[in-house]
């Protein structure tokens, strides 16, 4: 057959053969192959994207954690400081209170002492007066003439007592 003139028989068979091949391969070979290639590529892309997202999430989470930790640390420091100052305040207050109470007690005690002293003095004075009177009585019984002199003596004694 001629080299350069296509023969109608071969054209006919080639057309049929190629179209049948095209149909069969398209339907039963290329379709599943290309579909599965695409599916695989998509799943790889998706997996990579998911990994990237997870990485970002991780980073975010980590950053958040760090932030929370820092906040917690800050809070702790603040609380510690507060507690310390509160403690100091309480201590100061306690001390103040204690010193106040102590002062008051001392004052009270002093007042009581003064009162007691006064009372004791009064008592003593009365006692002394009574004693003096008794002494005077005894003296008077002995010598009443010299009463003025004696009274002056007694007063002098009393004065001496008061100083003591």
């Amino acid at each position: 057959m001629d080299l350069l003139i296509p023969s109608e028989g071969l054209i006919f068979w080639q057309l049929i053969g190629f179209l049948v091949l095209l149909f069969l391969l398209s339907k039963y070979a290329w379709k599943p192959i290309l579909a599965s290639l695409e599916e695989r590529e998509n799943s790889i892309t998706e997996a990579l994207e998911a990994a990237e997202v997870a990485k970002q999430e991780m980073k975010k989470l980590q950053a958040e954690n760090e932030k929370i930790l820092a906040e917690a640390r800050l809070e702790r420091d603040k609380m510690l400081k507060e507690a310390l100052s509160t403690a100091t305040m309480i201590k100061d207050e306690a001390r103040e209170e204690a010193s106040k109470i102590g002062q008051k007690m001392i004052d009270d005690a002093r007042a009581v002492i003064i009162n007691e002293k006064q009372a004791a003095m009064t008592e003593l004075k009365n006692q002394v007066a009574t004693l003096s009177l008794q002494v005077a009585e005894k003296l008077l019984r002995k010598d009443l003439s010299a009463s003025t002199e004696q009274k002056g003596l007694v007063d002098r004694y009393i004065k001496d007592l008061q100083i003591n």
């Binding site: 057959m1 023969s7 109608e8 028989g9 071969l10 006919f12 068979w13 080639q14 053969g17 190629f18 049948v20 091949l21 069969l24 391969l25 039963y28 070979a29 290329w30 599943p32 192959i33």
Partner: peptide, 25 residues
């Protein structure tokens, strides 16, 4: 429309291709 040598060869080529590509698929 004879099955000439080239037509026979065409059938062989088509069959080989179908056989291989179906195995791949």
């Amino acid at each position: 429309f004879s099955i000439t040598k080239n037509v026979a060869m065409l059938f062989i080529t088509v069959l080989v291709l179908i056989f291989i590509m179906f195995a791949v698929a």
